[in-house]
């Protein structure tokens, strides 16, 4: 039904098709991240999810955020995860005890959360159509960062510095 409305409204069909394909891949990969038996495979499926998020950012006209996502998540965070996996595990391969004893409790919790969120979203934004926006200029973002968000910007640089020092202090051997 909604597809008919979309076609009638002249909504960008190619954008919707691209969104659907990427979203299906992301959901499949996210389910693999939380269900696979192999920690390394979970990390590689997470790469698929993060790339999908970056692609969705481009569809949502947020290029700078998409590039930051690729640089920070796929470039840095995933390498950190792979280092964490390699440094904490003796063997690479399937594991049998990756889940808790009470893991099945997560299924009703996740489904209930999804139902509540979906109900609230459809209730609030049921038929809002997103405008066809052009790319966001990076100048607009930097203007925000260096004017009204300046104090949070400085705060987050301090947080990153503290996290870097804290990680070194925690992880060094002596």
């Amino acid at each position: 039904m909604s597809a008919v409305i979309l076609a009638a409204d002249g909504v960008n069909v190619a954008q919707n098709v691209g969104f659907g394909i990427i979203a299906a891949a992301m959901i499949f990969a996210a389910l693999k991240v939380v269900t696979t038996d192999n920690v390394v495979h979970a990390a590689l499926w997470l790469v698929v999810v993060l790339s999908g998020v970056a692609a969705q950012y481009i569809l949502a006209a947020a290029e700078f955020v998409a590039i930051s996502q690729v640089l920070v998540y796929i470039g840095a965070v995933m390498v950190l995860f792979l280092f964490g996996i390699m440094l904490t595990r003796a063997q690479i391969g399937k594991e049998t005890d990756l889940n808790n004893k009470g893991w099945a409790l997560g299924i009703p919790v996740g489904l209930a959360l999804l139902g509540l969120l979906a109900w609230a979203i459809l209730d609030a934004f049921g038929d809002d159509v997103l405008p066809d926006a052009g790319p966001t200029p990076t100048v607009a973002l930097s203007d925000q960062f260096l004017s009204i968000y300046l104090v949070p910007f400085l705060a987050i640089s301090f947080v990153l510095l503290a996290a870097a020092i804290g990680a070194i202090v925690l992880a060094r051997k002596d």
Partner: peptide, 9 residues
């Protein structure tokens, strides 16, 4: 929701 399931399970 998938992430919350993963944190619990």
């Amino acid at each position: 929701s998938v992430g919350v399931y993963g944190v619990i399970a």
